[in-house]
Amino acid sequence: MLTILVDGLAYGMLLFVLACGLSVTLGVMNFINLAHGAFAMAGGYVAVVLVNGYGVPFLLALPLAALAAGLLGIALEQTLYVHVYRRTHLDQVLFSIGLVFIAMAVVDYTQGSQQQFLNLPAFLKVRLDLGVVSVGAYRLLIIVVCGALALALQAILARTRFGARLRASVDDPIAARGLGINVNAIFAITFGVGSALAGLGGALGAEILGLDPSFPLKFMVYFLIVVTAGGAAGMTGPFLAAILLGVADVAGKYYFPSIGAFIIYTLVIALLVWRPNGLFAAASGR
C-alpha cells in the first residue's frame, strides 16, 4: 500500500519536472510548445552518451544533461521560436510538432531507434528499508530532487525580482518594456530554464520511462494532461496535478490492472468537468 504511494509519488514528481517547463511556456508565456518533449529527449540522450560512452558519473551527468537541453532551448528560442511568438496558436502547434519530427529523425539517425539503457551506479540500485515502507533508492532520489526543484521554482516565481519581472512581461509586455525590463531576454532565459528542467526530467526518467526516438510523442499526452489538469498559472497547480495523476495512475494499475491504463484519462475528464480551467485557474481568463 505505502509502496504504491511512494512509487506513484516518484512517478508524479518525474512528470512534474518533465512538464513544468511546458506549464511555464504555455501558462506564463502563452506559447504552445508541443516540442517540449524533444528537449526532454535531448537531455536523456546526453545523459546516456555521457554515462555509457564517456564514463561520466551519473550524478554529474544529470546537471550536464540539463545544461545541454537548456542551451539547446535558448539557441532554438533565439533562432526559431522568436518568430512564432506572435503568430496564432495553430501556427505555433504546426511549428512545434514539425520540430518534434525533426528531433525524432535526428536522434533516430545518430543514435538508432533502439531503446537506450542507462548504467546506474550501484548505490542507486539498492532498495532501502525505511521501517514501514521499502523504497528503491533511485525513486527516493527522484522524489528528493524533484521536490526540491518544485519548491525552488515556486519561490523564484513568487518571491524574486526575476519572477516579478517575468510576470510583468507576460501581463503587459509593452508596459514592462517601458519600465526598462528586457522582455526578450527574460523570455529567452525562461524558455532555457524550462528546457533545462525537461532535459533533467528526461535524464532522470530514462531509467523508469525508457528512452527511444519516439519519446517526445509518447509522452506529449502526459505533459499536456499535467498542464491542463493543473491549470496554467504558477507552479502549485501543475505540481499537485502531476502528483495526483502519478499516484492515481500507479494505484489504478495496481488495483484494477485490466482497466488501469484508462484511469488517468477518466480522472482528467472528471477533473476538467469539475474545474474546466484546471485545479488552479489563472485569475484572468487569458
Binding site: 509502496t3 504504491i4 512509487d7 512517478y11 523508469i208 520511462l209 525508457g210 509518447k218 509522452f219 502526459y222 495512475d249 500507479v250 494505484a251 489504478g252 494499475k253 495496481y254 490492472p257 485490466s258 488501469g260 491504463a261
Partner: peptide
Amino acid sequence: VAALRVPLANPDFAPFLQR
C-alpha cells in the same frame, strides 16, 4: 494466480511488478 496485461506504451512497470 493472475494474468496481467501491460499497456504497450506503458511508462512505468512499478504497479504491475508490485502486484
